[in-house]
Simulated assay, not measured.
Amino acid sequence: MNTEKIWFVTGASKGLGLTLVKKLLKDGYKVVATSRSIEDLRAAVTEAADSFLPLEMNLKSEASVQQAIEKSISTFGKIDVVVNNAGYGLSGGLEELSDEEARENFDVNVFGALNVIRQVLPHLRKQQSGHIINVSSIGGFTGMFPGFGIYCATKFAMQGFTESLATEVKAFGIHASIVSPGYFRTNFLTAESLNVPKNPIEAYKEVRDSQDAHQNSINGNQPGDPEKGVAVIIAAAEAEHPPLHLFLGQDAYDLAYQKMELVKADLENWKELTTSTGF
């Protein structure tokens, strides 16, 4: 491990982000961790004071993000690995969720990550190295989850811009990776991390059943171990040739193949018409 690397992790006061920060500090890395609440961050991480820089950051404010990036570099001299982990879940059918609810999810999950990328890239280009790791979801690869259309859309967006990013920054010695976790046993499905529609429509039985399952049956029983998940993320960051797509969990692995088989079936079943459109 190259523990000289400086990590910058967003959404670090809970969930997978908090587990990652604690593991990095334990392994001897220097870590900048951001959260909406610096009090929550300081309460959650109490070790390795000399190696740890907690920062309050508003993802939706470019000025706030810029200040956090500049403070990180002035403290540790550089940033090597950026983990865009901050985000929240949103349950609700497309008809149920208001424009405001949908846009807020995009503002945090998509445009918040883009604000970080926009502000950190000049520094990474200057040093001709770096690795941007964007934490998506298996729901960013397959959208077959009733009641999670907007959330999946935010994560599909992250997958798309990260693929483009990887091609744009390759010439500068910078890597980009998409992490797509399945279900990990964090607080992601608790009330503080999973928003529900303000005006539910009871006619959507599948949506209500899915929401209930995620809040009650699945929450607390997720098969993924966060400690093992973050160890894989660190291993990917240390790899000479890191993956563009990194799926985490047996469930994510299986669901990814299910999606690919569905796409393949549609391609082959409709091949004759699909390929008949040329001049």
Rank of each mutant, 00 (worst) to 15 (best):
M1K: 15
N2M: 13
N2P: 12
N2H: 14
S13G: 11
K14N: 13
K14G: 02
G17T: 09
K22R: 03
L25M: 07
G28W: 14
V32T: 15
A33F: 05
T34F: 04
I38P: 02
E39P: 00
D40L: 05
L41R: 04
L41D: 07
R42W: 00
V45T: 02
T46R: 14
D50T: 05
D50Y: 10
L53M: 10
L55S: 01
M57T: 08
L59M: 15
I69K: 06
K71F: 02
K71S: 15
S72I: 08
S74Q: 08
K78L: 03
K78I: 01
V81C: 04
V83K: 08
S91M: 11
G92W: 07
G93R: 03
L94V: 15
E95F: 00
E95Q: 08
E96V: 05
E100C: 00
A102T: 15
N105I: 13
V108E: 09
R118G: 05
V120Y: 07
S129Y: 03
H131C: 02
I132T: 07
S137F: 06
G139D: 01
G140L: 11
G140T: 07
M144S: 15
G147Y: 02
F148K: 02
I150L: 12
A157T: 15
G160I: 11
F161H: 10
A166L: 00
E168G: 12
E168T: 05
A171P: 00
G182H: 03
N187Q: 11
F188G: 05
L189M: 12
L189A: 13
T190I: 00
A191E: 14
E192C: 00
P197Q: 06
E206H: 08
R208G: 01
D209Y: 03
S210H: 01
S210R: 08
D212M: 11
Q215T: 13
I218H: 03
N219H: 08
D225S: 09
P226M: 05
E227I: 06
K228S: 08
G249D: 04
L255G: 11
L255V: 03
K259L: 06
M260Y: 10
M260C: 01
M260F: 11
L262C: 01
V263Q: 13
K264S: 12
A265Y: 06
E268H: 01
E268C: 00
E268L: 14
K271L: 00
E272L: 00
L273R: 05
L273S: 03
